[in-house]
């Protein structure tokens, strides 16, 4: 079931110099989301290996919606950007690589030093499904 939800029209920009609690600039656009917030956040939590409690999930879902409502303002630029290539980098650099020359590695001690659990020079982790 899909619920339509109107987010309150608070238009104040967060920053007031008397320092009252910040609120995002939230437009009055309505946002559509699945009423079963848990599925969406649950799915994201799985993909991102995050531990999220029920309560956290509700809050995160709400905040996700607030953020989406803001960032959807990019729709306004669609006409301007339709002919543009996406930029995932802005250096303009190309063809950066290095020669195939080896250098010394960390010692086994250095490599293992920060690990919580090791065994015979190997990192140790709770059993993983034999999925190789």
């Amino acid at each position: 079931m899909v619920k339509k939800h109107e987010i309150s029209k608070s238009k104040d920009l967060i920053i007031s110099s008397t320092g009252t609690t910040a609120r995002s600039e939230i437009s009055s656009a309505s946002v559509t989301y699945f009423s079963d917030d848990k599925t969406r956040i649950k799915h994201i939590a799985e993909l991102a290996a995050l531990d999220i409690t029920q309560d956290e999930g509700v809050k995160l879902s709400q905040q996700l919606d607030e953020t989406l409502a803001y960032i959807n303002n990019l729709k306004d630029l669609d006409n301007l950007v339709s002919q543009l290539e996406p930029s995932s980098q802005i250096t303009g650099l190309e063809n950066i690589s290095r020669e195939d020359e080896p250098s010394p590695s960390l010692s086994q001690d250095e490599a293992l030093k920060n690990a919580k659990a090791t065994q015979n020079g190997l990192f140790k982790v709770k059993g993983v499904l034999n999925n190789d």
């Binding site: 020359e101 080896p102 590695s105 960390l106 490599a111 293992l112």
Partner: peptide, 28 residues
């Protein structure tokens, strides 16, 4: 069979070597 790894300078000749002796911050 390059001499070094794909994204760092660790030696790529790892077969049969003592574990975790061919690592660096990048490949670790």
């Amino acid at each position: 069979k390059t001499k070094s790894k794909m994204f760092c300078r660790c030696s790529a000749d790892y077969f049969g070597k003592k574990p975790n002796t061919h690592t660096c911050p990048v490949c670790l």
